[in-house]
Design a protein around this nucleic acid. Structure first.
Length: 201
DNA sequence: ACTGCGATGTCCT
DNA sequence: GGACATCGCAGTT
């Protein structure tokens, strides 16, 4: 018999995030994002990511240098970069690369694993399980993440990424990013092949 | 199924 | 003043 061991409370170390952004984006697939709030704990498996980098990527918020909004991207790796967009939505990124290099991985979709009733409460009565976290703004709403968490360390106890499932290269699809115009040709989006919680096909 | 578009605040030119 | 790493609703095929 085969035993699958999961260690959902083992945080990924800062060194996991400090390297090449494309590699981090790929390797975040299958990991568990853990969020604890006053209402309870939630866990989602990361099933879709996108890489953003100040160098060679005109769609990166930091492409034209540091501003008040993107400053966290220039800081140390393993922290959260959360921004507000379209007048009503939040998106969360994980900062990568060494301090001084602005880069991050956008978390685009989660497969709900635990705390699903709380995610539904956060998302509102119209959300069903399939739609709880299959988009960057939806998952922030499900996990109660706003700009209040901008700069938040993933070594904290209320918001972190833990070891998850091993993902084979054969199960990773690499393609272009969604919802951007500049840099639309870069193959910097990664998702789990066939996973029903990916935001789009 | 698909397509178009309104909401709504902040950032940056 | 335009753009925006989005979402959900309304209308059509």
């Amino acid at each position: 018999m085969t035993t699958v061991t999961r260690t959902p409370d083992q945080k990924l170390p800062v060194s996991f995030y400090s390297g090449d952004t494309l590699g981090v984006a790929r390797n975040l697939l299958g990991k568990f994002l853990v969020r604890k709030t006053a209402g309870g704990a939630m866990v989602g498996k990361i099933v879709e990511t996108e890489a953003y980098h100040e160098v060679g990527d005109p769609s990166c918020h930091a492409h034209r240098g540091m501003t008040a909004r993107n400053a966290v991207m220039f800081g140390p790796p393993g922290r959260l970069y959360v921004y507000f967009t379209y007048g009503m939505h939040y998106c969360m990124n994980i900062v990568t690369e060494k301090e001084g290099v602005a880069a991050a991985v956008l978390i685009r979709a989660l497969e709900p694993v635990a705390g699903i009733p709380l995610m539904q409460k956060n998302r509102g009565p119209k959300a069903i399980e399939k739609n709880l976290a299959n988009g960057p703004a939806k998952l922030c709403q499900a996990l109660a993440i706003t700009t209040a968490q901008n700069g938040h360390s993933l070594q904290s106890d209320d918001l972190y990424v833990s070891n998850g499932e091993t993902v084979l290269d054969a199960d990773v699809v690499t393609t272009t990013r969604i919802g951007i115009s500049a840099g639309a040709d870069l193959p910097w989006r990664f998702y789990l092949r066939g996973n029903p919680f990916v935001s789009k096909k």
